[in-house]
């Protein structure tokens, strides 16, 4: 979503402007405009209150960003009503899915948890949060292959985490069914290979408790 003030940059934050006599106004703005509003809003007789999105509440495709100055101790506005946020979240979610159906640029995709863009990851090799690995799994696979000459971890874990392995197995199964449903056989083939490999590794670990995972 574009900033509602400059109409150029991506909106990162929502501002709540209290205009005397006109009630409360909500604006979705970029960081630069938010900073400007915060600095000069009062001089123009406008009370500016702002908040950052909580990453958990973010709809996909919207960058939460950090508060101006990077420190939210100096950026502590009043909270908006949660039901308003929920409504907005739903609206953004619908808008985002419409955009992606219309063939949006995948490089502009952002992690819903931390807001890190795929483009930034490609440029710097730096991830934003553990969730980024899941969200951009397919996009980072070639990067990992280039860096390591392999795409799967060949080392050992300190302690077994079988539950997450089984969860992953279930998720792969669902993804596989989905891929077959939409007749994406290339993806289905890759998912099946991954599913079989994971199933084998989990089976081995069950046979020999701690064997593969003991440090």
């Amino acid at each position: 979503m574009k900033c509602e003030i400059c109409h150029k940059n991506e909106a990162e934050t929502v501002l709540f402007r209290d205009k005397p006599g006109k009630g409360r106004e909500e604006l979705y703005v970029c960081r630069a405009c938010a900073e400007r509003e915060e600095a000069f809003g009062q001089e123009r007789g406008i009370q500016v209150a702002a908040m950052e999105f909580s990453p958990d509440e973010l709809p996909p495709g919207v960058n939460p960003g950090l508060p101006p100055g990077g420190d939210d101790e100096g950026w502590s506005p009043p909270k908006p009503p949660p039901e308003a946020l929920n409504e907005l979240g739903k609206m953004f979610g619908q808008l985002s899915s419409l955009l992606s159906e219309a063939g949006g640029n995948p490089d502009e995709a952002r992690c819903p948890k931390c807001g890190q863009a795929l483009e930034e990851i490609r440029a710097s090799g730096l991830m934003g949060c553990p969730k980024c690995y899941e969200v951009f799994r397919e996009a980072i696979a070639p990067l990992l292959a280039e860096l390591n000459d392999c795409t799967a971890f060949g080392g050992t874990f300190g302690v077994a985490k079988q539950a997450s392995g089984r969860e992953r197995l279930q998720a792969l199964k669902a993804e596989l069914a989905e891929a077959i449903k939409r007749e994406d056989y290339a993806t289905a083939k890759r998912l099946k290979a991954e599913f079989e490999a994971l199933k084998r590794s989990l089976g081995g670990a069950e046979g020999a408790p701690g064997g593969n995972y003991g440090a």
């Binding site: 990851i121 730096l126 553990p130 300190g158 392995g165």
Partner: peptide, 26 residues
């Protein structure tokens, strides 16, 4: 490794331990 049960490190079966730098993942 002894700290793992207490701290719950981010990791996946496929990629190992997840780090900020892709060069350290695994």
């Amino acid at each position: 490794d002894r700290l793992e049960p207490v701290l719950n490190f981010a990791r996946t079966e496929q990629l190992g331990y997840l780090t900020r730098q892709l060069t350290l993942t695994g």
